[in-house]
Write a protein that binds this DNA or RNA. Structure first.
Length: 290
DNA sequence: CATTTAATAT
DNA sequence: TATATTAAAT
C-alpha cells in the first residue's frame, strides 16, 4: 500500500486553484499528433545503455501520481523505438525520455511557483502542485534551476536601468506585488511579498525543437509537432493536487504572462544591427493566444 | 533526505 | 539547445 507522497492536506486549505481552462488548449487547437504507439518508457527500454545497470532504483510510481491529471506528459522517443516485444507495464527502472516543457506544462510550472510562493516553491512541492502524471522531482528541479537563472537575469536587467524612463520590465522595475496571493497561510503569507520577483514572469515559444534543428541522432526528427497533448477536456473539477488539498481561491491577479521574451536567451550577441529582433522560433503550439 | 548550484553529459 | 545527471555544499 503505497500512499501518495502528497500528504499536506492538513495544511492550509487555502491554496488557490487557478483556472486551468485558461491554459488548456482547446480541443480544436490541438494538433493531430500521431505518436503514442507505445509507452515512452517502453521505447526507452530499448534504448537503454548496455551497462550502467541501475536495476535497484526506487520505482517512481508514475502511474498513481495523479489520477485526475488534466495533463499528460509527452516524451520524445529518444531512441528509434524498434517496437515489438512485450509492452504492458513500463519498466520504471530505466531512464525515461526527455521531458519536453511545452508552454502549457511550463505555465503550470510558473503558476505553481507563483502560487506557492518562494517559501514553498521547491521541487517536490511544485511537482505535487502541478499534478502532472509522470513529472518527477528532478524534472522540476532541473527546470526550476533554469527558471531561476532566467529570473535572475531578468532582474539584473531591470536593475541595471530602470527607474522611470526606459523601464523594459514593467513588473520588475516596480513593486507590483499586486495582492497577497496567499490570503491564507497564516504563518507566512508574506513569503511572496518579500521576494515578489519570483512570479508573474513568463515566457513562451522556443520550446520543442522544430524540425530544422533535429539533433536526434537516431531516427531523426519525425515527431516535432506532437508537442502538446493535453486532455482536451476534463479539466474542470480536476482537483489538481488531491493530496495537497488546494482549494479554489484564485486571486491570481499576478500572473499576467506577458510576452517578455524567451527566457533561454544565450548571451547577447552581435549588437551591430541594433537590436533586438531575435529570431522567433516558430510557435508550433496552439498557444497563439490564450 | 531534500534543496541549491555549478559543472558536465546526453 | 534543452534537458538530465552528478557532485558538493547546506
Amino acid at each position: 500500500m503505497r500512499e501518495e507522497e502528497v500528504e499536506v492536506e492538513d495544511e492550509p486549505k487555502c491554496f488557490a486553484r487557478w483556472d486551468w481552462e485558461e491554459q488548456l488548449p482547446s480541443p480544436n487547437e490541438l494538433m493531430p499528433l500521431s505518436q503514442p504507439l507505445i509507452t515512452p518508457d517502453l521505447a526507452l527500454a530499448f534504448d537503454i545503455p548496455s551497462s550502467s545497470s541501475s536495476v535497484a532504483g526506487p520505482p517512481p510510481d508514475r502511474s498513481l501520481l495523479r489520477q485526475s491529471e488534466p495533463f499528460e506528459l509527452d516524451r520524445e522517443d529518444a531512441g528509434g523505438g524498434a517496437g515489438g516485444g512485450g509492452e504492458e507495464e513500463p519498466p520504471r527502472t530505466l531512464k525515461r525520455p526527455r521531458l519536453v516543457w511545452t508552454p502549457q506544462l511550463h505555465k503550470r510550472f510558473v503558476d505553481a511557483v507563483a502560487h506557492l510562493g518562494i517559501k514553498n516553491a521547491v521541487p517536490k512541492t511544485i511537482m505535487q502542485f502541478m499534478g502532472v502524471d509522470g513529472l518527477t522531482r528532478e524534472n522540476v528541479a532541473s527546470h526550476l534551476q533554469k527558471y531561476r537563472l532566467y529570473l535572475k537575469r531578468v532582474q539584473m536587467q531591470g536593475l541595471s536601468a530602470s527607474s522611470s524612463s526606459s523601464a523594459p520590465h514593467p513588473f520588475l522595475g516596480r513593486t507590483p506585488v499586486a495582492a497577497p496571493a496567499e490570503p491564507c497561510l497564516p504563518y507566512a503569507p508574506v513569503a511572496m511579498l518579500q521576494h515578489h520577483q519570483k512570479n508573474t514572469e513568463s515566457m513562451q515559444q522556443q520550446y520543442y525543437q522544430p524540425a530544422h534543428l533535429g539533433h536526434f541522432s537516431s531516427g531523426g526528427p519525425g515527431f516535432l509537432s506532437r508537442t502538446v497533448q493535453t486532455q482536451p477536456v476534463v479539466h474542470r473539477t480536476a482537483g489538481l493536487a488531491p493530496g495537497l488539498g488546494f482549494v479554489p481561491a484564485p486571486p491570481h491577479s499576478a500572473t499576467p504572462y506577458m510576452n517578455d521574451s524567451e527566457w533561454s536567451r544565450k548571451g547577447e550577441h552581435g549588437g551591430s544591427g541594433g537590436g533586438g529582433a531575435r529570431r522567433k522560433e516558430l510557435t508550433l503550439f496552439p498557444t497563439g493566444e490564450d
